[in-house]
Design a protein around this nucleic acid. Structure first.
Length: 350
DNA sequence: AAACAGTGCAACCGCTCTGAC
DNA sequence: TGTCAGAGCGGTTGCACTGTT
């Protein structure tokens, strides 16, 4: 014996609620309270399903419901709580006064989820995902658009941006330089294999996307390796922060990709010790990094989630409190913002 | 200006879980 | 222990709005 339906399907009205229906529901609940949803529609004179009445009340008519855009604080809270609670929308909503689980769920699916994906962060695990990072859009730019770069620079290593620009303008020259750099590095490290010209062309063809988001299959070997590095248990890794003149393109991309975990940490807050560690390691991204330096640190500490070390909500509230979509999109990584000189010359480093 | 595609959001559906009886 | 109502969730739909062609 199954459960009796909550209402007569053929006698209930569906679709958007009218103001008249809203008034009837509000008036009834104010007089009798929000109880016995099954009998409420009939008693209130509504041709609605009890469940529909309950949802309408809890999601839109209930006093204290906050409408309008989500603030940055709310958005950050949602991301933090989601990293801990998962899709427990009601639990998340309980910590966001005036917001409903349905509203948060919709906002997550339509805004936050897409934004995390664009920033190369898995919305399920909140871990950086190289295969989600849309680097192909950068390398496929028909021409270098500075405003585009200024937006992307919050996420990417400026040195890689300059490389991408040069790759667009003069792939042949870049190839030559990279081969020179490869030889230079091989001499320095006495262990780096020299790659073949055709191999490199295949790998960094500006018309070839670095990763295929639809299949999660990285196109290039080097990116694939980094993808494995970025996902899961990464353990120790070495970061080579040589200046551009003595650095292979692959190393530069490595530096770029490995900067992504910092975003996660800044997004979700970091302990004082982690912040210190980060501040030590973030200097490698300086545009003027001219010295040869190498740092080792653990990805585990960088990627640890609030699960094991709860951090106060809104702990990283130093983002710019703007209102535009672009500002929202970049706020996570705004702490990684680097200045691009107005007189930036992409040919400088060549 | 019109057609079309993309996007955001309110609302719904079907199902599961939980607690009261 | 079984039934029922409420609550919660993931997924989906339909419509209005906006941007693009």
């Amino acid at each position: 014996m199954g459960r009796s339906p909550c209402c007569e399907k053929n006698s209930v009205k569906k679709g958007p609620w009218t103001s008249e229906e809203d008034m009837k529901l509000i008036q009834y609940i104010q007089e009798h309270g929000a109880c016995n949803w099954r009998s409420l529609p009939k008693n209130a004179g509504l041709q609605r399903c009890g469940k529909s009445c309950r949802l309408r009340w809890t999601n839109y008519l209930r006093p204290g419901i906050k409408r309008g855009r989500f603030s940055f604080e709310e958005e950050e809270t949602i991301i933090q709580l989601h990293s801990v609670l998962g899709n427990k929308w009601s639990a998340i909503a309980a910590r966001l006064p005036g917001r409903t689980d349905n509203e948060i769920k919709n906002y997550w699916n339509t805004h936050i989820r897409k934004r995390l994906l664009r920033n190369g962060i898995d919305p399920v695990t909140h871990a950086p995902r190289l295969d989600l990072l849309d680097l192909s859009s950068l390398l496929n730019l028909p021409q270098i658009n500075l405003s585009h770069l200024l937006r992307l620079q919050t996420l990417l290593n400026p040195e890689a941006l300059r490389l991408a620009a040069s790759l667009q303008e003069n792939p042949e020259l870049l190839l030559t330089k990279l081969q020179e750099n490869q030889l230079f590095n091989a001499q320095l490290q006495n262990q780096t294999p020299v790659f073949q010209t055709d191999q490199f062309q295949n790998t960094f063809d500006p018309q070839t996307p670095l990763c295929n988001p639809s299949t999660d299959v990285p196109v290039t070997t080097s990116v694939s390796n980094q993808s494995h590095l970025m996902q899961g248990n990464m353990g120790q890794f070495s970061m080579n922060t040589e200046s551009l003149s003595g650095q292979t393109f692959q190393n530069n991309l490595t530096t770029t990709f490995e900067s992504v975990p910092f975003i996660e940490n800044f997004c979700f807050g970091a302990s004082d010790q982690k912040q210190q560690d980060l501040s030590e390691n973030i200097s490698f991204q300086s545009l003027n990094s001219g010295s040869h330096s190498s740092k080792n640190f653990s990805f585990d500490s960088v990627l640890s989630t609030p699960l094991s070390s709860p951090t106060p909500l809104n702990s990283s509230s130093t983002y710019i409190n703007g209102n535009t979509e672009d500002e929202r999109e970049s706020y996570c990584s705004s702490l990684l913002k680097f200045e691009i000189p107005e007189s930036l010359d992409f040919d400088d480093f060549m």
